[in-house]
Design a binder for these strands. Structure first.
Lengths: 209, 209
DNA sequence: GTCTATATTACGATAGAC
DNA sequence: GTCTATCGTAATATAGAC
């Protein structure tokens, strides 16, 4: 298995996906050219076509990987049975995962419309698959009485919008640590569904009351 | 003031802005050509340049108008002094306004990155101006004790993300009326900030409890 | 106010040498 | 596996006739 030093297929492929992700997230799919991506990788534009048949496939590959990874990461964790704990856990997981992959998240929300129909449906189905996990928690909590007066489908969308929106303003190294943010949003979410937040009667957290 | 029948400057300009808004919202600024816009309006591509110096100015004009209109519409309403009522009012206003102008809203969230620096700063400042109105309500409620254990800046972003996210799934004529949605989200929001929602002990609303 | 025609530049993708 | 060169197309924007 002799390899040329400095350039293997896997290496280059990873660099291409990384560059595409950064550029698409920053400027948008339609505004980025294959030449820009190649330039970022350090190869000629024509070389990209040994790794992806089209620009569209490059985008679809990025989004598919992201959604697959997200669902796999969530399913790999253990989930509390108690709805209140499960919702707290979901909130923290979603925030933590999304804050560590801001580009992928941004892309998967902004560039759905750049996908051709087949790819679009595939990604939309994967997203719905993930959302279903939150709807299930909300429905369980409604049944046990842990949550009150909520409609699971709408509430799931409301919560996901709220949590994902963090990526619009969060910058690492800011006033609040990631853990502060998780704790704060968990309280917002638990209150919103009519539950008593975990730390409500134990105000040691860093927020002013 | 003799006018040629069928085509005045104001008419055509309005059509151009309308077409640009629709197309940019649907396919993204970078993916839409001046030819497409002209075709939608029913004029030749070159005619557009009598109404806007560049494509970039067309986008900036759309976003500026939207933010100006949003702020003017909010300021034109009367705002309750009581923080709880004020927050309920803000929630309903934001939802109602955003659901009536889905394209403008979508554009102003998706195409900020397509703006060149000067325009970007201008729009960002206008947005912050609007957000400030919500922060003010939250800070007042914290002072009076109507809201508990919240941080106004973060909570404002959380609420705005949640409310604006409605435009991602709402379709007119669905299961829930706009008023149902306003009522439901007002409860989510008021609960989240630690207030007792207006209709909490009066569960005549259409949600199941 | 709108048109035809065009200058200039860039795009996605391919062919074929090395 | 990467390159040079290029094909065919389409982009923004402008010039100038009517």
């Amino acid at each position: 298995m002799a390899r040329k030093a400095g350039s293997t297929r896997q290496d280059t492929e990873a660099k291409i996906y990384l560059a595409a992700r950064n550029l698409f997230a920053r400027f948008g799919y339609a505004a980025v050219s294959m030449r820009q991506i190649a330039s970022e990788v350090g190869v000629n534009q024509a070389a990209l076509y040994h790794y992806t048949p089209t620009k569209q496939d490059l985008l679809a590959g990025l989004l598919t990987r992201h959604m697959d990874d997200l669902i796999a990461a969530y399913d790999a964790e253990s989930h509390p049975d108690d709805p209140l704990l499960a919702l707290d856990h979901f909130t923290r997981f979603h925030i933590a995962y999304h804050l560590t992959k801001p580009d992928e998240v941004f892309l998967s929300y902004m560039e759905l419309r750049s996908l051709e129909p087949d790819h679009f449906q595939k990604i939309t189905a994967l997203r719905s698959d993930y959302e279903e996990r939150l709807r299930h928690i909300l429905a369980s909590g409604l049944k046990t009485g842990a949550f009150t007066a909520i409609e699971p489908s709408i509430t799931a969308m409301a919560i996901l919008s709220m949590l994902t929106g963090i990526t619009n303003w969060y910058k690492p190294g800011g006033r609040l640590s990631q853990d502060d943010i998780e704790t704060y949003y968990s309280r917002l979410v638990l209150r919103a569904v009519g539950a008593t937040p975990l730390a409500e009667e134990n105000p040691q957290c860093s927020m002013r009351a």
